[in-house]
């Protein structure tokens, strides 16, 4: 087990390095310069500023400088926010995105699983159709439409929650709901399908025959087996939500990292692009590792053989 984890960590470092390299060179293909007044400056004037930031060096030289600094924990300074450190900016911005992402995932997963369970237990009944309907709506309405509707009706018309901005817990309610709708739909759909399949298998029938009641079977024997595919899907989705979503952040004026990332690409803010990419890549690889480990906990059949 220990060996397995160490092995995975080594792969993780190699993957991160490859991602850093690939992104760096791709990024240099972006048109334009990081200068914000490039349309006004003469070529000579631009050259002076580019020199100051080492951007006139050949790309391979810039790459080695970047990797060298990165290994020392220095991600550089942002171009669009002059002199502000990349790590500071990312740290400031990831907080709100994480808050929303985690809240949305927790609510979305729990509600979605409940809906899915209800559907499976009352298969083809009124409750099944009801929850399937909710899931279809959640999956098919684009989040910006849903967010806009929430903001207008719940925020402006009813006045129950703040319309937008980021000043306290109640400000997270609407964006969380808007974000949660998608995981609800996904979780409900998977849960329903898997539960129906599991509930039809022989060992469930055996358990029932031995006199375990309906709910006991569902929670003790069925749920656990239905979780595997769910976790596979929800892990990456969680990373997507926690690392920020441009649309929801813009609509609810959340100072998150999603919008920041897109803007960095549009303005050629190379250090921010690199920093954010590496962060997202890290979280992604990390969560995949966790999911692999979780499989073993949930299902003894796929417990990892190595080191035993």
């Amino acid at each position: 087990m220990t060996r397995y984890i160490i092995q995975r960590l080594v792969y993780m470092i190699i993957t991160m390095f490859l991602i850093a390299t690939f992104t760096f060179f791709l990024m240099k293909f972006l048109p334009g310069t990081p200068l914000s007044a490039a349309d006004k400056l003469s070529e000579e004037q631009q050259q002076v500023v580019l020199e100051k930031y080492g951007l006139d060096d050949p790309v391979p030289v810039q790459y080695f400088n970047y990797i060298f600094n990165l290994l020392q924990g220095d991600m550089g300074i942002s171009f669009q926010f002059d002199n502000r450190e990349v790590t500071t900016i990312i740290f400031e911005r990831i907080g709100p995105s994480m808050t929303l992402g985690v809240q949305a995932m927790v609510i979305g997963t729990i509600l979605g699983m409940l809906l899915g369970l209800v559907s499976a237990i009352y298969h083809n009944g009124f409750l099944d159709y009801g929850s399937t309907f909710i899931a279809v709506i959640g999956k098919s309405i684009p989040s910006f439409v849903f967010a806009g509707i929430l903001q207008y009706f719940v925020g402006v018309k009813l006045g129950w929650f703040p319309v937008a901005l980021w000043e306290g817990w109640e400000y997270t309610v609407l964006p969380t709901v808007a974000l949660a709708i998608f995981p609800i739909a996904i979780a409900a759909r998977f849960m329903r399908t898997e539960m129906l399949e599991v509930m039809g298998s022989d060992y469930i029938t055996t358990a029932r025959a031995k006199g375990v009641n309906k709910f006991g079977v569902v929670f003790k024997h069925g749920l656990r087996n239905a979780l595997i595919p769910l976790i596979t899907v929800l892990g990456p989705l969680a990373i997507g939500l926690m690392t920020g979503t441009l649309v929801i952040e813009n609509i609810f004026a959340v100072p998150g990292i999603g919008e920041q990332f897109v803007k960095a690409i549009n303005t050629n803010d190379f250090p921010i692009i690199m920093g954010t990419t590496l962060l997202i890549a890290f979280l992604f690889i990390f969560i995949v590792l966790i999911i692999d480990l979780l499989y073993g906990v949930i299902d003894p059949r796929i417990r990892l053989a190595e080191g035993e």
Partner: peptide, 23 residues
Amino acid sequence: VACSGGDSTDEGSSDDGSTDTEQ
């Protein structure tokens, strides 16, 4: 940690913004 980090920033800027939500 990530969540509480976010929350503490919020507290820093305002605690009772809820009074502003009245339509």
